[in-house]
Write a protein that binds this DNA or RNA. Sequence first.
RNA 1: AGGCGCGUAGCUCAGGGGGAGAGCGCUACCCUGACACGGUAGAAGUCAGCAGUUCAAAUCUGCUCGCGCCUACCA
Length: 888
Amino acid sequence: MTTEQLDKAYEPQNVEGRWYDYWEKNGLFRADENKAGESFSIVIPPPNVTGNLHMGHALNNTMQDMLVRYHRMKGHNTLWLPGMDHAGIATQNVVERQLAADGTNREALGREKFVERVWEWKEQYGGQIINQLKRLGSSCDWSRQRFTMDEGLSRAVKEVFVRLYEEGLIYQGDYIINWCPRCHTALADLEVEHEDLDAKLYYLKYKLADGDGCLTIATTRPETLLGDTAVAVNPEDERFSAYIGREVILPVLGRRIPVIGDGYVDMEFGTGALKVTPAHDPNDFELGLKHNLPAVKCIDDDGRMNDEAGPYKGQDRFECRKNIMKDLEAQGLVDKIDDLRHAVGHCYRCKTVVEPNLSKQWFIKIKPLAEKAIAAVEDGRTRIVPKVWEKTYFDWMLNIKDWCISRQLWWGHRIPAYYCEDCGELVVSREDPAACPKCGGSMRQETDVLDTWFSSALWPFSTLGWPDKTTELGVYYPTSVLITGFDILFFWVARMMMMGLHFMEDIPFHDVYIHALVRDAEGQKMSKSKGNVIDPLEVMDKFGTDAFRFTLAALAAQGRDVRLSDERIQGYRNFVNKLWNAARFTLMNLEGFEPSRTEGPPRLDESKLSLADAWILSRLETVAEEVEKHLNGYHFDRVAGDLYQFVWHEFCDWYLEMVKPVLYGEDEAAKKQTQAVLAHTLSVILRMLHPIMPFVTEEIWWKVPGVEQSIMISPWPGTGIGRPDAKAERRMEMLQGVITTVRNIRGEMNVPPSQQVEVVMMSDNAEERLVIDQQEHLIRPLVRAKSQQVVPMGEKPKGAAAHVFGDVEVFVILAGLIDFEEEAKRLQKEMDKLDKDIIKANKKLANEDFLAKAPEDVVAKEKERLEVLNAKRDKLSLSLTRVLELRQ
RNA sequence: AGGCGCGUAGCUCAGGGGGAGAGCGCUACCCUGACACGGUAGAAGUCAGCAGUUCAAAUCUGCUCGCGCCUACCA
């Protein structure tokens, strides 16, 4: 057996790419749908084809990769299915910008050429993010990678559209929708971002047609008055009820419009009179339907005023606002102008102010689909973690409105609806109809495409081959868990629930884990405009992928946003290095060691098991249990935290230090046994860390004696990997306490580290004396003692500093070195602290209510605690007296 | 306007009815044969405020203050 030397520090750059290639080449990411046994599956939230890896992706995919690697190691039939989203508006915008740079535009190119151009763009520049996901270590089955516009998924989209249409769940109609004048498309309500802006509230006078004064209305959008077809007041409003049924004269245009009464009007706001523009306001649209008002569109699809705007025709809507106010002012029709802060809708892609607009669109009747999706979460078939998000989900689902699915774009799934050029007949069909079934005329396909989220809604089953009945669907659907951010709970998760339940008649995932947002060190949301974006790729370059992943995991407490800072990542980079060096030490000391097996704990001679070995094996069992529990509960932070604590503060700080004398010693049998435990512990640590830190663990793994295959496919250390031993843990706890106590005295008394001291320990507990005596070889090097004595309580040694741990009084003999002044101060301070606790405990135990009402074990514990405190105080008090005597 | 969440050590955050925790930072000493990306020890907190429930509250309830976020048609 040879032991390869490891470098002194871990250098991720030399390691990561090499192992990723190895995994990929050896097919270790590939899922086999024919493999027997329990399956575990995840579909990736498909990143936009235009996207670049940001912190949200990094967090999201680190979590997915952790789970996937964990389940793969457990031997489950594991699939992580990757892919990308065609991202309608985003991609179209990118290519349009490119065209603009070339001095042309999509209209000049024509639809067909433009779509070709987008595909070319995709081949050339799209999907950068896939390589970035690989940098992150994502173990996706790339052989199954999908794209929402690929052939199979397009077929699924068509199938779903046609079926929903046939079931009467898709309809077409004239409704008011959110229109983006920049992107030239309809937007769903969800795609509108509301932002509070400082604006004005204009009070305008509309003259009554019968010449009797005027009615003053309040509006934030005076330019829309050109499309007014009524003024509404509340019939309960005594000021105005008399006006109902009369007419007013629309300024500028002179149109006579009715005054109507409707309870919708808020009497408190503005003047209590509301101008009604059914074509450019969703509420006015509703009023218009109710009162049978005509809808007059005065703004066109570019956001410019149209023919209906009379003198303002051709002006931009905001320019028109200024001009119309100038004119109204001149005519004395402006009563006043107030400041007003209110929410204005913006396009989520390009941030242009949206224009509510009346137009013909396609919708999904969503209520019947939503009911099933609500039920599935209510009855627990799908679990939302953390549970707080369930409420948000229900609130939205219960108030859901029909989904506007048509978009006036060129890049996307073209709606499979066809119109007859002659008779106008509408046909919705999977195949292009050759001719009109009614009149034989030629057919023309609908120009609109579907909302990008329409195809993403099908992702969990379309990617597995639906509508065909594939083996994959049988094995991997429903998927095990969906990991995603709350920002797309409605956009995506809710819609997958609805579509999955409708078309697969089963939930799309058993669990939905909603993670938080990654923010900067100041807690600000990262955004390009703020310039506070931390690029994951730069972080990986600087600190290594494993350190980065570990940081994300460690900070990802459920329901709490992740604040990322360099210091934090650096801290975990140090941890990676610590692990590296612990492994380095371990491997250096496995010279001549022959491994027996890597699966269960090593075969050991129980009678000769050292305390340190017994202890670490016991701790290993506990940690393995905890880690597994936290992985199953999506407590990624605790997985990371427990492993950090165990590796650094138990394995490195204690175990490795305690094992040195054995490894450097002469007892070959003892050495062999410790080597076995050491090798085993390292192996288990590596495997437990692998899901979080795939690269460094793989790199070390191959140097562990006996390793023959990638850590990725090595067995997960489940229960039975260690060896529970409560006695060993109790004894070790006592030893650690005693050792820390000696070190504490050394530190407080400023004994130089190189100075060897004499240690005396006193205890009336025979078992503890025995353990301390037996473990002298282990204690002495750790406290730098040239001698160690353990005796029953009695005459205290002279010239010694004392401290108490549990039943043991610890003396460090410092003849000539001791500063009695300092020692007295230290003892006094310690006693003051104790006194506080003793007073508190006494008070508690004197309280009859406490004794009567608190559970027995709590009372017993408190009594015991008081005894311990008192005993300690007595010992310290004696020591203090002695020190004070010696001082004189 | 409604809803949700958060205020715990200098910073970032765990914890969640009975002894205040971690990481980073800070202080002191140390290049001890894995690691200075390190070691040992140490200092540091009226657990936002007020009231209530309880034998017992950082933890449960209510209110107040401060900070985020989400949803919403008040023009």
